[in-house]
């Protein structure tokens, strides 16, 4: 166990995405918006955003997070230093230089690729939220695997290191899902469920920081195998399983337990 003092402020490395939006929503809600942000460029995802907006109109995804928000709007009239970089590569030398200059030690990472050793060696703590309980569920698309195997759902906040999903664990949260996924909701799992459980776990992490609670991290033995990116067939079977487990008798929701 390693003890840390809660940070008073934080920074965020933003690769514009729906996940970053979900994160910013909870940061804003907790009045813990970063006071330094590095925003990368990401032109992809416009079609996904349109399709998701269509799904959301019918199934009210705003109950999970507001997919129509704009990343830059979060920082208007806020005491935040915004650094816009013309790159989509999280390991670009421009990003490395900018991270080096940040005054904050703690940086929330919102995805966009795998951080290389050089950026992870800058004496900063990158906080990553992984959609799985480490060390059992390490690797890609883990929440699908945990749902398929034992209908469990969890997420882990940890400090990133050079190995995949093997860093110091800050906290972990379990969730229960009772939700029916209709055939016209192909984006729900990847863009709503995944981002939602991650953002709620970030929220629990922020609660530690906001209340100025010193926290302890722990390291698990992560020498076992990791999960690989899931084939569409198994992603479909995961949806079948979620639907099979759905009960009309209780509230339709994704709940932290």
């Amino acid at each position: 166990m390693i003890s840390y003092k809660s940070p008073e402020t934080i920074a965020m490395l933003i690769w514009p995405s729906l996940r970053a939006l979900a994160y910013l929503e909870v940061l804003n809600e907790y009045d813990f918006l970063p006071d330094e942000v590095i925003i990368l460029k990401n032109d992809e995802g416009n079609q996904i955003n349109r399709d998701l907006a269509n799904e959301s109109r019918k199934y009210n995804y705003h109950q999970f997070y507001n997919i129509s928000n704009n990343i830059n709007d979060f920082f208007v009239n806020k005491n935040c230093k915004v650094i816009n970089l013309n790159t989509k590569d999280v390991n670009d030398p421009m990003v490395i230089r900018s991270v080096k200059r940040l005054k904050n030690k703690y940086i929330i990472f919102s995805g966009g690729g795998i951080l290389k050793k050089i950026i992870l060696s800058l004496n900063k703590f990158f906080i990553h939220i992984h959609p799985g309980i480490i060390p059992t569920y390490r690797g890609s698309t883990c929440f699908n695997y945990s749902l398929l195997e034992n209908y469990s759902l969890g997420s882990t906040a940890y400090f990133m290191n050079k190995n995949i999903d093997s860093g110091e664990i800050i906290l972990q949260r379990d969730f229960k899902i009772n939700y029916f996924i209709h055939p016209d909701q192909p984006l729900f799992i990847d863009y709503i469920l995944d981002n939602y459980i991650r953002s709620q776990t970030l929220k629990a992490t922020l609660a530690l920081f906001r209340d100025n609670i010193d926290f302890k991290t722990r390291i698990e033995d992560c020498s076992g195998f990791a999960y690989y990116i899931m084939h569409p067939l198994l992603r479909y079977l995961t949806i079948e399983k979620i639907n099979k487990e759905f009960s009309h008798k209780i509230k339709s929701e994704i709940k932290m337990i």
């Binding site: 055939p183 909701q185 990116i229 084939h231 569409p232 949806i239």
Partner: peptide
């Protein structure tokens, strides 16, 4: 396979 879009209608 990363974020490949699924067509859930008659998938199987």
């Amino acid at each position: 396979y990363s974020y490949a879009k699924l067509d859930l209608v008659d998938y199987l």
